[in-house]
């Protein structure tokens, strides 16, 4: 089984590289005309590691405030940033993952369970370093600063719940973009608006890096300024994720806080189950692509200005 596991891990490495390449090519279709595609393929792994390390550094920077000053608002912001960063920095590659064609694996003598496992490993590879780093680093840092195993365990649970939520939202968004928008060819205004939002979401990672780098200090200032406000709304906010975990790690204990944290842990368990089944669906090729009645509209030609036609085709993904 172990040798089989290591073989499947190697297979997932090939798929991972393929997904990253497809993600790079779909992000910038003109890349192939500007650079030799051989160079893109060679640097694809390096770029992905660079992105992962960058994400880790950003998360570490964001973790400084909650570790040094264990206030509820700092911890809350940190947990929210985990969700935010994973979603916005992962949306491009995860959309490529959802769109990936695993048909070739199904030709090969691999069982369904093996293909599912390969798929899961591939998905894990997309975020391996930041996921593991966060799970180890944050609870350990909390333990070192508080010498409290209980707080470290709570920090561990909070980070795991945040990671599960962010990955589930990521897959959900990627499936939506893939099935309803990216592969749709119909030209309704509503679809056009969705496509525009899709482009905006895809381009957000670039802003995300800028946002974090530029406003990291401001976020910390805002958090200290609003610390009192947060405490005064404890009753309401203790029901809301990630505030509830912020209060809990801070050291507040109440029945409603414990209850709401338990509910979010339960939700995370359901989200994890859904995530695994969604990944399994992708590996079995049952993810639905857009179904629309676009064939008729494709065959209709309308005269419009060349400028308008060009802009429409640019917006069309």
């Amino acid at each position: 089984m172990l040798s089989n596991f290591s073989e499947l891990w190697k297979v997932s490495g090939v798929l991972y590289k393929e997904i990253v390449l497809q993600s790079v090519l779909s992000r910038n279709p003109l890349a192939t005309t500007n650079r030799k595609i051989e160079d893109i393929v060679k640097t694809v792994n390096l770029n992905m590691w660079f992105n992962k390390i960058l994400l880790c550094i950003m998360l570490c920077i964001m973790a400084i405030a909650p570790i040094m000053n264990r206030s509820a608002i700092n911890i809350t912001i940190f947990l929210a940033m985990i969700v935010f960063l994973f979603i916005f920095l992962g949306i491009q590659t995860v959309t490529s993952f959802v769109a990936s064609n695993f048909n070739y694996l199904r030709i090969l003598p691999l069982g369904r369970d093996e293909i599912s496992l390969v798929n899961l490993m591939t998905f894990f590879r997309l975020f391996d370093l930041p996921l593991v780093m966060l799970i180890i680093f944050f609870p350990l840092a909390i333990f070192v600063t508080t010498f409290s195993p209980l707080h470290a365990i709570l920090a561990f649970i909070a980070v795991v719940v945040s990671e599960v939520f962010s990955l589930a939202i990521l897959i959900c968004l990627a499936r939506l973009f893939h099935s309803k928008i990216a592969h749709s060819t119909s030209g309704s205004r509503w679809r056009g608006l969705l496509k525009f939002l899709y482009i905006m979401t895809w381009s957000l990672p670039a802003f995300g890096f800028y946002f974090i780098a530029r406003f990291a200090v401001d976020i910390s200032e805002i958090s200290s300024r609003y610390s009192g406000v947060i405490s005064s709304h404890y009753g309401v906010l203790s029901f809301i994720f990630p505030f509830c975990f912020g209060f809990l790690i801070r050291g507040s204990v109440s029945l409603q806080l414990l209850g709401s944290c338990a509910v979010y842990i339960l939700l995370a368990v359901f989200a994890l189950k859904w995530l695994l089944s969604a990944i399994n669906e992708i590996s079995s090729g049952t993810v639905r692509v857009a179904r629309d009645n676009s064939i008729r509209s494709q065959n209709q030609t309308t005269s419009s200005s060349s400028w308008y036609a060009q802009k429409r085709s640019e917006v069309d993904i």
Binding site: V14, L15, K17, E18, V20, L21, Q22, V41, V44, N101, N103, Y104
Partner: peptide, 10 residues
């Protein structure tokens, strides 16, 4: 297959 499916990064 009719539509070639290969791993393009290899």
């Amino acid at each position: 297959p009719e539509e070639i499916m290969l791993f393009e990064s290899l």
